[in-house]
Amino acid sequence: MHFFRFLLCSLLTMLLAEYSQCIAIPCKDNCCSFVEGFPLRLKNLRSSYDEIRDYYETNDELEVALINKTVLENFKSPYGCHVFDEVLHFYLGTVLPTAVTEETKRFQTSIDNIGNIFQALKKDMIKCRRYFKCQKPFEIASIKKSYNDMKEKGLYKAMGELDLLFNYIEEYLASKRQKQ
Rank of each mutant, 00 (worst) to 15 (best):
residue 18 E to K: 13
residue 18 E to T: 12
residue 19 Y to E: 05
residue 20 S to H: 06
residue 23 I to Q: 11
residue 23 I to T: 11
residue 23 I to C: 04
residue 25 I to L: 11
residue 25 I to Y: 14
residue 26 P to N: 09
residue 27 C to V: 04
residue 27 C to L: 03
residue 28 K to T: 07
residue 30 N to V: 09
residue 32 C to P: 07
residue 32 C to A: 13
residue 32 C to W: 11
residue 33 S to G: 09
residue 33 S to K: 10
residue 35 V to E: 02
residue 36 E to W: 01
residue 36 E to V: 10
residue 37 G to Q: 08
residue 38 F to P: 06
residue 38 F to H: 15
residue 39 P to A: 10
residue 39 P to D: 08
residue 39 P to F: 02
residue 39 P to C: 08
residue 40 L to Y: 04
residue 40 L to C: 03
residue 41 R to M: 10
residue 41 R to Q: 13
residue 42 L to I: 06
residue 42 L to F: 06
residue 42 L to Q: 12
residue 42 L to K: 14
residue 43 K to G: 06
residue 44 N to R: 15
residue 44 N to Y: 11
residue 47 S to L: 13
residue 47 S to D: 10
residue 48 S to K: 12
residue 48 S to P: 01
residue 49 Y to V: 03
residue 50 D to F: 06
residue 50 D to Y: 15
residue 51 E to I: 09
residue 51 E to Q: 15
residue 54 D to N: 08
residue 54 D to Y: 08
residue 55 Y to S: 09
residue 55 Y to C: 07
residue 56 Y to G: 03
residue 57 E to K: 15
residue 57 E to H: 15
residue 58 T to P: 01
residue 58 T to S: 15
residue 59 N to P: 00
residue 61 E to R: 10
residue 61 E to V: 09
residue 62 L to T: 07
residue 62 L to F: 02
residue 62 L to G: 00
residue 64 V to T: 14
residue 65 A to E: 12
residue 65 A to K: 13
residue 67 I to A: 09
residue 67 I to P: 00
residue 68 N to L: 06
residue 69 K to A: 11
residue 71 V to H: 01
residue 71 V to T: 13
residue 73 E to C: 05
residue 74 N to W: 05
residue 75 F to M: 08
residue 75 F to R: 04
residue 75 F to T: 03
residue 75 F to D: 01
residue 75 F to H: 04
residue 75 F to S: 04
residue 76 K to S: 14
residue 77 S to I: 03
residue 77 S to P: 01
residue 78 P to I: 04
residue 78 P to T: 05
residue 78 P to A: 07
residue 79 Y to Q: 14
residue 79 Y to P: 00
residue 80 G to I: 06
residue 80 G to R: 13
residue 82 H to W: 06
residue 83 V to F: 10
residue 84 F to L: 15
residue 85 D to I: 00
residue 85 D to L: 02
residue 85 D to M: 07
residue 85 D to Q: 13
residue 86 E to Y: 02
residue 87 V to I: 15
residue 87 V to Y: 02
residue 89 H to K: 15
residue 90 F to Q: 02
residue 90 F to R: 07
residue 90 F to D: 01
residue 93 G to P: 00
residue 94 T to M: 08
residue 94 T to H: 10
residue 95 V to S: 03
residue 96 L to F: 08
residue 98 T to G: 01
residue 98 T to R: 15
residue 99 A to N: 08
residue 99 A to M: 05
residue 99 A to K: 13
residue 100 V to M: 04
residue 103 E to C: 01
residue 104 T to K: 01
residue 104 T to V: 01
residue 105 K to S: 12
residue 105 K to V: 09
residue 106 R to S: 11
residue 108 Q to D: 05
residue 109 T to E: 08
residue 109 T to F: 04
residue 109 T to A: 11
residue 110 S to Q: 15
residue 110 S to E: 14
residue 111 I to W: 09
residue 112 D to K: 13
residue 112 D to Q: 14
residue 114 I to E: 02
residue 114 I to W: 07
residue 116 N to A: 02
residue 116 N to Y: 00
residue 116 N to I: 00
residue 116 N to M: 02
residue 117 I to Q: 10
